[in-house]
Design a protein around this nucleic acid. Sequence first.
DNA 1: GATGAATGAGCCTTCATTCAT
DNA 2: TATGAATGAAGGCTCATTCAT
Lengths: 216, 216, 216, 216
Amino acid sequence: MEGQKEQSTLERIHAAAQAEFMEKGFHAASLRNIVKTAGVTTGAFYGYYDSKEALFEALVGDAAEYVLNLFCGTVDDFEEMEGEEQTRQMFDVSQDVLMQILDYFYDNKDTFMLILTRAEGTKYADFGHQLVVREVESTYTYMETLKKMGHPVEPLNRNVIHMVASGMFSGLCETIIHDMPREEAKEYLMQLQRFYSAGWEELLGIRFGRESKESE
Amino acid sequence: MEGQKEQSTLERIHAAAQAEFMEKGFHAASLRNIVKTAGVTTGAFYGYYDSKEALFEALVGDAAEYVLNLFCGTVDDFEEMEGEEQTRQMFDVSQDVLMQILDYFYDNKDTFMLILTRAEGTKYADFGHQLVVREVESTYTYMETLKKMGHPVEPLNRNVIHMVASGMFSGLCETIIHDMPREEAKEYLMQLQRFYSAGWEELLGIRFGRESKESE
Amino acid sequence: MEGQKEQSTLERIHAAAQAEFMEKGFHAASLRNIVKTAGVTTGAFYGYYDSKEALFEALVGDAAEYVLNLFCGTVDDFEEMEGEEQTRQMFDVSQDVLMQILDYFYDNKDTFMLILTRAEGTKYADFGHQLVVREVESTYTYMETLKKMGHPVEPLNRNVIHMVASGMFSGLCETIIHDMPREEAKEYLMQLQRFYSAGWEELLGIRFGRESKESE
Amino acid sequence: MEGQKEQSTLERIHAAAQAEFMEKGFHAASLRNIVKTAGVTTGAFYGYYDSKEALFEALVGDAAEYVLNLFCGTVDDFEEMEGEEQTRQMFDVSQDVLMQILDYFYDNKDTFMLILTRAEGTKYADFGHQLVVREVESTYTYMETLKKMGHPVEPLNRNVIHMVASGMFSGLCETIIHDMPREEAKEYLMQLQRFYSAGWEELLGIRFGRESKESE
DNA sequence: GATGAATGAGCCTTCATTCAT
DNA sequence: TATGAATGAAGGCTCATTCAT
């Protein structure tokens, strides 16, 4: 309270852990190294966390959950729309949520670097896969809806959708992984979205409504 | 001599290593566990390989190199074509090499599961990234060529190309990662290619020649 | 708190290490054996030292450095004297420093047994050689001084001086190596010094000033 | 017989062993390394020798024994002389045997480097000590003889003799250890002998007959 | 005489975690 | 809340030597 310069024990542990996990990955990271860097003792550490895994979770858990919730919530909302409305809104909703995620990634860059590249051996290793799976499910349901609405949609296997969705997520992640500047990344993401929209239209044989591209 | 069932020591080591690496990843895999499963002593193991890393390399090195060479060779050849020829052939060349890679992935499924998902801590951890980088470079060069040929191509930043290429590769990998049947996977990949072609056409504002889609 | 008999962990490690190194030499000594004898685990050991080598150093480092400094300091001081003064004091200074070293050897007998006979594989393996080299340099300088002062000194090659100095040091070490009683050793050392003085006088063709031998 | 270029298996083993022992010392030397360098298999090696120790012995045994016999034989012969004769001959006999040893050292330089500096862990570690002990015994006996002959010899403790003899041997060894040229080494050794003679005369209070120093 | 795969004990070192203080 | 010594299992790896061929 008196001075803001001094970091609390916990803060020092977090900082040291972030650096160590980032440098070596979860498995190769050494807890002893972390506490040494943090300038605390092992005993002190175990007063805060029960294990190395718990420490990793503390570092990334909230952010991961936030994105998961953000994405799933958006998808849930989308699924409650009517079919026509879905087609009309799809592009914008998608663009919106992707942009939000991108922003959140950049707001918590270190954290998501950990999640996306250093989580092998933790339950966050399949973070991306979780998002993709939810996306696939939603897209599949949407396709069913289209069919029910009498639109002649080419039948697509869930696996294709998975492959596409996985690619989209992968592309999204490259922005922070390769340290692209945030504003540029937003540009890229919008281009990527146009790319994917065109792809979906090609595959489904339909056309989405979008404002960002009036022509044709 | 009597039966063919007996495996050689090396074969047993390989089998045990494949299983252990697959289960725990390179770092967490235990050499002691591997040799125990293989039914040999550590000393015996070191008669074959110099280190845990060398063992991993023996398991995946050739296959990784093969794909790298296959892909880079194809890209090299493509880059030596004339601009017009490139545009005409792009789709087919691309489809062809992707199909070859897919086939090779399935011919060596266990191996590529290791490379793609369990290589953290080895030099194969960036296998995908290497391919993507080469692809990006080639695409960028192609864009320059188009520009020189007088085609009005929308200027694309390397990073966007990277994001797209990374997504394509990611999609390709999902086939074996999620254990899709080979023949189905080929179908999916062809659809994915249509998807990506449409995406590129959208982004670049051009149209590729392809037989698989006469209409329009 | 209750009794003084209980040794600390570190003391037990030191004692066990001293015994093991003494018995087998640095290289052949087994850390596992040391910690077993000390009644601790390997982990406990590495809380104190970073390596087997660090343990050896902890056992002998200070003592080795002390003698090195004592000797070099004395030699440095000697070299700052004037030539005449040097000749006059040589015997006494030499006797004094040798006696001091002998005493220090005996005060730390176990330690110097390690340094002098069990240090192969460590940086202390050339402890004696270091002292000898310094002695040789000093003697050589003294010879030059004599020459400058106009004394007809027979020219001696550095190598001869090295051989003599090495012998003197070797003789000195035999006292503790062969477990001679300290007081007797002092007697022997004084005789050895008379021996070496006579040798030098013969070789250099001069005569040192000394009180212990008035006659002749 | 046909070609002299090809080395036999045994010769290659010897050469590799010499190099490995020289580089790392007996204990740290790796037999596997030796056979690899020699280009043979471990099995082949064990056809020649029963152990690493046996190999070391094969390399140095004969030479060590030769010097031991040469020295002890000389001392034995000396001890059979009459007292007066001993005093008269001492210097020459001593010089002669030292020169012979020096020559033999140089004739088998690699071998004696092994014996004198790399034998820790073998029975040759105390090679020097053995020579010294014999020398001490002889000198002590000689002193007794002198006493019996009525010469007023200052009583010397065996330990002093040991210290002196040890120094002499140490000086002798420095020649090959420090790679002094053979002919120079001989010069140095003669100077060393004058040094030691003067020392003994001082200590015993007698005078040896020697030709190399007529004066006085 | 030679092979070379295999042994099995041993090497030094690091790990995440516990617990008495 | 914190200490820090200690645990005990496990890590990858090397050793001299053996033995069926």
